[in-house]
Simulated assay, not measured.
Amino acid sequence: MTTETPSTFQNLETLPTAALLAGMNQLDQTVPLAVQNALPQIEALVEVLVARLGAGGRLFYIGAGTSGRLGVVDASECPPTFGVPASMVVGIIAGGDGAIRQAVEGAEDNATQAWADLQQFNVAAQDVLVGIAASGRTPYVIGGLQAARAAGLATGCVVCNAGSVVAAACEFPVEVVTGPEFVTGSTRLKAGTAQKLVLNMLTTATFIRLGRVRGNKMVDMQLSNDKLVERGQRMLMDELGIAQPQAAELLRQHGSVRVALAAHAQQAGPAIEN
Results as ranks from 00 to 15, higher is better:
P80R: 05
N25P: 03
R137T: 12
T2W: 13
G71K: 00
P16I: 15
Q253W: 07
L223Q: 10
F82D: 01
E239M: 13
L53M: 12
G56W: 11
C170P: 06
G143N: 12
A162D: 13
W115M: 06
A55T: 08
A133E: 05
T5K: 14
R258I: 00
G91P: 00
R149F: 02
I242C: 07
Q233P: 08
A116W: 03
E43C: 05
Q36F: 13
M24H: 09
L145A: 03
I208V: 13
A263L: 04
F82W: 06
G106T: 06
P40R: 09
E77P: 11
L70N: 03
I242L: 10
L199K: 02
G232T: 13
R188L: 10
G91E: 02
T8Y: 01
E43I: 07
S186N: 11
G68S: 09
E171W: 08
A116F: 04
G106D: 11
R149Q: 15
G192K: 00
G91S: 01
D97G: 11
G98F: 07
D220S: 06
S224D: 14
V35F: 09
Q146S: 07
P6M: 14
G179L: 15
Q253E: 10
A147H: 09
A268Y: 02
L39N: 12
V177G: 07
V123E: 04
G83I: 03
P139H: 10
A75Y: 01
E4Y: 09
A107F: 03
T138S: 12
L12Q: 12
L15V: 04
A147V: 06
D74W: 01
E273S: 13
A168F: 03
E230P: 07
G23D: 06
P245G: 08
N11D: 15
L49E: 03
S87W: 10
P32S: 14
V130T: 06
A44S: 15
A133P: 12
D117K: 08
A147D: 06
S135F: 05
I92W: 00
R234Y: 14
S87D: 15
K227W: 08
A125E: 14
V128Y: 03
A263T: 06
A44Y: 06
V166N: 04
G106I: 09
G163M: 06
L59Y: 02
Q36V: 10
N216T: 15
A134D: 02
A148P: 01
L15T: 03
V177L: 05
Q41W: 06
G65A: 09
Q253L: 15
E47V: 05
V73M: 14
F121L: 11
P139F: 13
Y61S: 02
E43S: 14
G192R: 01
L21A: 11
M218V: 06
A243L: 14
L15K: 09
N274L: 15
G255D: 07
A260Y: 00
V130C: 05
L20R: 05
L27A: 05
D28V: 05
D28S: 12
F207N: 01
A44I: 04
R214V: 04
L118Q: 04
C157V: 05
F172H: 14
A167V: 08
V177C: 15
G232S: 09
A162V: 10
E43W: 12
D117I: 03
A116H: 15
A103W: 02
K190W: 00
S135A: 10
L33H: 14
V177Q: 12
